[in-house]
């Protein structure tokens, strides 16, 4: 395996970030050599999502090593560990299948720390005789970890979530919602046409189009703006952050377009956009490395009723506006 990425690799990574063909982006599981490893070279265990393997091998320039790639169904280490596919049983099976005990003299496996939710180190030792050492969270810290006698600094053990780390996750948030966006847009076009003339195609396009624009603004606010501004938005709950950012955007929209929208449509905008933004922001919890399931469940129970009521009230105001104008 090479330690440099080709143009095709970079293109593939870009496609993955936009959610294109992600379930097919895999490496065949098994044992791989990076550089020219020998019987004393370290064994690094990883997942078979191709982007994961690529990021790992890039950090191994000048470091001969064995890569033991587990079959995680093309899913990254952290999520596969949560599901158990990056797990104790698969690791023991893969060690046996690759005859690792005959390839290397030592009995040490280096696992990414974020694989720990799926792997019990003491059970691996019992199951195949290899000792599990948890390496750093980030592959970029591996050279320093290896040079330091397999010792990780406290910083290497902590998860980060920088603005760049947040931003790269946003395209797939949007592309994942595309089917639902199309359904919602179609419904808005139909609802937009309903008015005192029963149904008007002109109104469908103009009023429906305006509503779609407001909805898209809410989605962009919740799925892009909130992730980027995450630490600076008020509240701990993502839905609160989303509603706050949504209110700012909707308020600006009402000020600029208020005279054209009328009072009822403006109210609808001020209700609907924050509700959509809150929903999208709440869904970003799954992409973050610092939200607990108990916390997310509490946030959902607390905020979903408000989101639903706001959206319903917005719909009533909007449709009523068509009859009253």
């Amino acid at each position: 395996m090479a330690t440099a990425l080709t143009f095709a690799d970079h293109l593939g990574h870009w496609q993955m970030r936009w959610g294109l063909g992600r379930m097919r982006y895999r490496v065949a599981p098994g044992l791989y050599a990076v550089g020219a490893p020998d019987a004393d070279s370290p064994v690094l265990v990883t997942a078979n999502y191709k982007m994961t393997v690529d990021l790992l091998r890039c950090e191994l320039l000048g470091i001969p090593a064995w890569l033991l790639v587990l079959d995680t169904k093309g899913i990254n280490v952290w999520c596969a560990a949560g599901k158990g596919t990056f797990g104790t049983a698969e690791l023991i099976r893969r060690v046996a299948e690759s005859q690792l005990g005959e390839v290397v003299r030592h009995r040490t496996l280096i696992l990414p720390q974020l694989g720990a939710p799926g792997v019990a180190a003491h059970e691996v030792k019992q199951g195949c005789g290899f000792r599990v050492i948890y390496g750093p969270v980030r592959a970029a810290d591996l050279p320093a970890f290896l040079a330091n006698g397999l010792q990780a600094t406290p910083a290497m053990r902590r998860v980060t979530f920088t603005v760049v780390e947040r931003l790269v996750l946003t395209p797939v948030e949007i592309t994942g919602m595309l089917p639902r966006i199309f359904w919602a847009a179609g419904s808005l076009l139909i609802l937009g046409g309903i008015g005192s003339q029963f149904f008007s195609l002109n109104a469908a396009v103009s009023r429906g189009g305006t509503a779609i624009a407001a909805g898209l603004a809410g989605i962009l606010t919740g799925a892009v703006l909130v992730p980027v501004l995450l630490p600076w938005l008020p509240g701990r709950m993502f839905a609160v952050k989303g509603a706050f950012a949504g209110l700012l955007i909707a308020g600006a929209g009402a000020m600029i377009f208020g005279s054209r929208l009328g009072i009822l449509d403006s109210i609808a905008l001020l209700l609907a956009l924050p509700a959509v933004a809150a929903w999208c922001a709440m869904n970003f919890t799954g992409a973050t490395p610092f939200t607990s399931p108990s916390g997310v469940e509490k946030e959902m129970r607390r905020t979903l009723p408000f989101q639903a009521v706001a959206l319903l009230a917005a719909g009533i105001c909007w449709v009523a506006g068509a009859f009253l104008s």
């Binding site: 720990a116 180190a121 003491h122 869904n283 799954g286 939200t291 399931p293 916390g295 997310v296």
Partner: peptide, 30 residues
């Protein structure tokens, strides 16, 4: 600061730690 990932409980050889592990993801819970 705990995110209930379950890594500690899984790797405790004497089962001193317990946590209801899962994914902190709204769509998963939904």
């Amino acid at each position: 600061a705990c995110i209930e990932c379950g890594a500690c409980a899984r790797n405790c050889p004497v089962a001193a730690l317990t946590v209801k592990a899962g994914v902190g993801c709204a769509s998963a819970i939904l």
